[in-house]
C-alpha cells in the first residue's frame, strides 16, 4: 500500500510535468508492477482524477478562464459517456481493458509527439446554436490589454466528441483531457487556456459519473483508491507548483518513449 502511495506520487509529479493526468501512469503502475487487478486499478485511478480536477478548479475559475456554459453544455454527453464506459468496463473481459488501455497510451504518445498548435485549427464559421446559447467567453488580457471575446463554434461536433471522451474516461479511468482540450481549442475555436480550464472542470464531473458505477459495483477498494488518490493529488500539486517551470523537450521525449514501451507491455498482457 505504501508502494502504491509512493508510485502514485511519482505518477502525479510526472503527469503534471508533461501535462497529463496521473491516471495514464497510475493504472499501468498498479497492474504491471504491483499486481493489482485492472478493475481495482481503474477504480482507484478514476477517484484520483476527481481529486486533481476538484483541486485545480478553484484556480481556473478565479482566473476567469473556465467557460462555465460550454462546460455545462458538454457535461451531459461526457457524463452519459462516463456511465456507459464504466458499465462497459464491468462487462468486458479484463484482457480487453489491457488492450484498450495500451492502445490509448500509444495514441496519447502519438498525440504528444506532434507539436500541438493552432495550425490544425478548423476555420471559424459562426455557429447559430452557440450564439443562441450565449456560449461566447472572454479571456483576460495580460498587462493592460483588454479582455478578448471569443466565439464558440461547432457545438454539436463538440458534444459528440465529448461523449466519446466520456466513454474512454469511464472505461479506462483517465480524465481524457488529451481529447477534450484539442476538441475545444482546435474544433470549437476556444483559446487554449480557456479550453484547458474548461476541460479540467468537466473532467471532475465525467469522472464522478464513472466513479458512481465503479463504487456501486464494488470496484473501488478503499485501501487502494485512498492511497492512490492522495498520492496523485500530492504529486500533481508538487509537480505543478515546484517543478512547473522546468518543462523541457527532453523530458517530454523520454516520457513519450516510456509511454510507448509501457503501452506495448499493456497490450502484451492483454494477449497473454
Amino acid at each position: 500500500m505504501l508502494v502504491a502511495f509512493v508510485a502514485s506520487i511519482a505518477a502525479g509529479v510526472l503527469g503534471a510535468l508533461v501535462g497529463l493526468g496521473g491516471g495514464i501512469i497510475v493504472v499501468p503502475a498498479l497492474t504491471l508492477f504491483l499486481g493489482v487487478e485492472i478493475r481495482y486499478a481503474i477504480g482507484a485511478s478514476i477517484i484520483s482524477v476527481i481529486a486533481t480536477s476538484s483541486a485545480a478548479s478553484a484556480r481556473y475559475i478565479r482566473d476567469g478562464l473556465a467557460n462555465l456554459r460550454v462546460g455545462m453544455l458538454l457535461e451531459p454527453s461526457t457524463a452519459i459517456g462516463g456511465v456507459l464506459g464504466g458499465v462497459l468496463a464491468g462487462l468486458l473481459d479484463p484482457r480487453w481493458l489491457y488492450l484498450c488501455f495500451g492502445s490509448m497510451m500509444a495514441l496519447t504518445a502519438l498525440a504528444m509527439s506532434r507539436q500541438r498548435d493552432a495550425d490544425g485549427a478548423l476555420p471559424l464559421h459562426p455557429d447559430p446554436l452557440a450564439r443562441k446559447l450565449g456560449l461566447h467567453g472572454t479571456v483576460p488580457g495580460a498587462r493592460g490589454v483588454p479582455p478578448r471575446v471569443y466565439e464558440v463554434v461547432r457545438v454539436r461536433t463538440g458534444m459528440s466528441i465529448a461523449f466519446g471522451a466520456g466513454i474512454m474516461s469511464g472505461l479506462l479511468g483517465v480524465g481524457g483531457g488529451i481529447v477534450k482540450v484539442p476538441t475545444m481549442s482546435l474544433i470549437m475555436g476556444m483559446p487554449l487556456k480557456a479550453a484547458t480550464a474548461t476541460s479540467t472542470l468537466m473532467i471532475g464531473v465525467t469522472a464522478a459519473a464513472s466513479a458512481g458505477v465503479y463504487i456501486s459495483r464494488g470496484d473501488v477498494d478503499p485501501l487502494i483508491a485512498g492511497p492512490v488518490a492522495a498520492g496523485v493529488l500530492v504529486g500533481a500539486s508538487f509537480g505543478g507548483s515546484v517543478l512547473g517551470r522546468t518543462r523541457s523537450g527532453l523530458l517530454r521525449a523520454i516520457f513519450i518513449i516510456v509511454l510507448l514501451v509501457i503501452a506495448l507491455r499493456m497490450v502484451m498482457r492483454g494477449f497473454a
Binding site: 503534471a16 501535462g19 497529463l20 484556480r59 484547458t196 480550464a197 505543478g240 512547473g244 518543462r247
Partner: peptide
C-alpha cells in the same frame, strides 16, 4: 494546487 492541464499551455496562445 495546480492541475495537470495548466502546464499544457506553452507557446503563447496569443501568437
Amino acid at each position: 494546487m495546480s492541475g495537470s492541464g495548466e502546464l499544457r499551455e506553452p507557446r503563447g496562445f496569443d501568437g
